[in-house]
């Protein structure tokens, strides 16, 4: 079997974890009642939805990195991974902020988990973006 790129697999795993985050650490479940009487989900519900899509993108990019042969192509995709990591971090903070009260479910579990996973994604992307080092292997002729 061809050797897969370990960094790509790790990225894909983190992507899947981001998709699973709102499942394992759910956001607030209640509905808000608007002044016109309509019941709508809380803001953090949309944060979770957005992050699941971003997680999916990260997972797909990771798989592409894992299977691609060209080092240059992998490097390009790792730039994208780093960028997606930044988006993962910024989403619950600024892009679609979670609910206001710090004791709500979305702020207790989901948000910190997403920020950590985003940071890991960013780290993986940056690590994969660097210029490749010389191969060092443990087989000298004895």
């Amino acid at each position: 079997m061809k050797k897969l790129n370990a960094l790509g697999i790790a990225t894909a795993v983190v992507g899947v974890l981001i998709i699973l985050t709102p499942v394992i650490l759910p956001v607030c479940e209640g509905l808000l009642e608007l002044t016109n009487g309509k019941q709508v989900p809380m803001r953090c519900f949309w944060t979770a939805r957005a992050e699941m899509i971003i997680g999916g993108l990260i997972a797909i990019t990771g798989l592409m990195i894992a299977f691609l042969k060209s080092a240059e192509a992998r490097r390009r995709l790792n730039h994208q991974v780093a960028l997606l990591g930044v988006v993962t971090i910024l989403t619950p903070l600024f892009i679609i902020p979670t609910c206001t009260h710090p004791d709500m479910a979305c702020n207790l579990g989901t948000k910190p988990a997403l920020i950590i996973l985003g940071a890991v994604t960013l780290g993986l992307g940056l690590y994969g973006s660097r210029t490749p080092e010389p191969e060092i292997s443990d087989h000298t002729i004895s």
Partner: peptide
């Protein structure tokens, strides 16, 4: 007989 260089 063997070089046994440190590979790293």
């Amino acid at each position: 007989q063997f070089a046994s260089l440190i590979p790293t």
